[in-house]
Write a protein that binds this DNA or RNA. Sequence first.
RNA 1: GCCGGAGUGGCGGAACGGUAGACGCCGAGGACUUAAAAUCCUCUGCCCCGCGCGGGCGUAAGGGUUCGAAUCCCUUCUCCGGCACCA
Length: 817
Amino acid sequence: MAVPYDFARIEPFWQGYWQREGFAVADTAGSKDLYMLMMFPYPSGDLHVGHGRNYILGDCLFRMFMMQGRRVLNPMGWDAFGLPAENAAIKRNVHPYEWTRANIARMKQQFRAWGILYDWDKELASCEPEYYRWNQWFFLRMLEKGLAYRGRAPVNWCASCHTVLANEQVVSGGCERCGTAVVQKDLEQWFFRITAYADRLLEGLDRLPHWPEKVKVMQRNWIGRSEGAEFTLEVQGRPELGGFRVFTTRPHTAFGMTFTVLAPEHPLVAQITTPGQAAEVSAFVERVRRSTELERLATEGEIGKRGVFTGSYAVNPFTGQAVPIYLADYVLMSYGTGAIMAVPGQDQRDWEFAIAYGLPIIRTVQPPEGWVGEAWTGDGPAINSSWLNGLYMKEAIARATDWLEEQGIGTRKVNYRLRDWLISRQRYWGTPIPVVYCPEHGPLPVSPGDLPVALPTDIEFGGVEGNPLARSASFLTARCPECGREARRETDTMDTFVDSSWYYLRFINPRTADAMFDADRVRRWMPVDLYIGGIEHATLHLLYARFFYKVLNDFGMVPNDEPFEVLFNQGMIVAPSKTTGKLEKMSKSKGNVVAPDELIARFGADTERVYTLFMGPPEKEVEWNDEGVMGAHRFLQRVWAMREAVEARRGVEGEQRADETLLLAMHQTIRRVHEDLGRYKPNTAIAALMELSNVLGELQARASGAALEEAYSALVRLLHPIAPHVTEEVWQALGHAQSLLRSGWPQWDADLLARQEVTVAVQVNGKLRATVSLPRGADGEVCTEAARAAAARWLEGKQVARVVHVPDRLVSFVVRG
RNA sequence: GCCGGAGUGGCGGAACGGUAGACGCCGAGGACUUAAAAUCCUCUGCCCCGCGCGGGCGUAAGGGUUCGAAUCCCUUCUCCGGCACCA
């Protein structure tokens, strides 16, 4: 009776061994081989099995690369600025730095307990001045180039987090962090001009064949490029106003413009409102202004209930007709020009508005025969459109736009959904924006020699709302770089996504003291070859990082313009909700987490690793199942127990047939595991290893000691990336002095596999009727005859009309009668 | 509404257009045990014929292409994700 392996003893032992030996430390001064990277985590404290899935997959690949003799940079660090630390500080009166450092220590220990190896020599934390000073340095360069600017704009405000948010951090009208409904505020804030890179961010996606299509599509949607025309509408009888601009992607429908709509926030509203309409208009504007984004979303589909006539008219330049100017909240100030030409015949929203307000509808595109719907938005010949009549969309758009340009009232225009990146945050725990405000000279950049602008430590957090930096006298007071007189320091800090936009460059040589990163090594080591992380960053981190990298490329600091060659998005682990029972993301706040500590205590880290990698393809979302864990554990115990049988059979002769079967299974398994891990399918690689283990179990009493040990050794080596501790223990017990990490990666014998017999399927009229075993590469005639014999029963008395032979796979008879 | 992705046993999931359900979980029966746990062995998609032999049906639904379809094409349904009064 075999003794179960003592994971509680051996796992810590091997963890210590790997660390002492420094297996994961990469020398980046040398030439590059492979740079793999996991998205660095926010040090929130406890990790659950859902986080583990990410890191375990990475470690599995890393160990495989190591065994294959690759030299791999595989660093880890901490995205260490952010709100939870500050909220913890407010609640418990500990400094965010201490809270963060304690969590980092805890998480490092969890990584270690999972048997995960990182190059800790390269560790960095974004909350350290030697890191964030380079955020400040970069900000100053952006400022110099006009890529950072201060502007007044309606911004998203989260009242619960007491800060503004970037557009990317607003998820269906709520704060990405806490879900609180976001309200619009007009504030002066700092922005990065990411819109200047919109086209390049789009174009670059086409050069990323190894990114998931899903992420590329999400980024394209987010950037939201649309081509069209912009032109001026005059306000009838008010030439001194100069009119207002409208944007449209469908200028060819303009003959059907029967009214026009401004966003309620449009600057012209006050001037064009007639006295008779003033009361109604101001009531409407006030109502819209007070509504949150969420309320606006909730009224979706209620177009027509939320509009008002201004009393003024504009002139449709195509027809010369006067059309009424309305305000409506379905027109957004933040997109295009904040004003539209309304063509109810060709736009469903305009149609509904026209019906509700009794406005005329003129169709300008012929709907297809039998069309019974309302607005027709598809293609068709132009009608009721004078000189455009009969033209189809493409041609009509071109003509209409040319005409606008000839008349000098319009131009071709490209619009984007993407907004500039708002980076100001009214919080303490982030990178101070390096700017001072002089009463004389206005906002001025801190001179580079005065960096870093360090976060003050003399801060009281306890219970007070608002940005604590604004209450720190020592921080607030500065000298004007221009005149030296007393000035006020900027108290906003940077969005933490600034930190994560370039950390992968710093990792390459994180102790670089005199520059943002080691430009020489970066030139050799970038781009990152394999980047692993969650899909939730598709339009956040991954968009910002690409933007930064392109800017750095323009600054001549990096060698290419896309930072991540291969992107792998692992799926979430979900678990039933404690309240509703519906599957949802595993998270501490939802209370449905499985803690790795307990799991490791009961079954060991190797078991968690095997189960995590086995439960499904890693890019898919999967449900955690406690019973599945047992299967993984049993498998490891069987592999462990087999060691005794192998040792006991050393030197024993066996049946030749058994040896052949065993070695064939071994070589097949080597190939399958190699290929499956290479295409990120550890689940099927593990299935292959289980099959080999089953074959070993069946043949252990009949195969020779030598064949048994050869196959078992291959199994143990192939299993190492997946279950590193128990395999090291077995390997050592078998008498090997070297770690498995240094013992090479098994190779399969292609010739042997090519010589094996194959099972050929025999079909009659597409139905499987028999199988025959034949040598690989058997002649077509031989094959067909064997098949004919095997399927004789079904061919009797039938006329064979056709025979399809697929070498080594099947023979298919097509029969009549 | 638009754009992606996915629907395969009781469950997680395998399957270059070529033997559907690998591997694992659950379940059933058996061995070991005083007993239980653990472990090991056998069975385990559905249906029909008493079992076996054998046969039929089966990859969301319906149709098509093909000697052959889970896989390709069309139509429909459902679920998941993203974007969304974007002009």
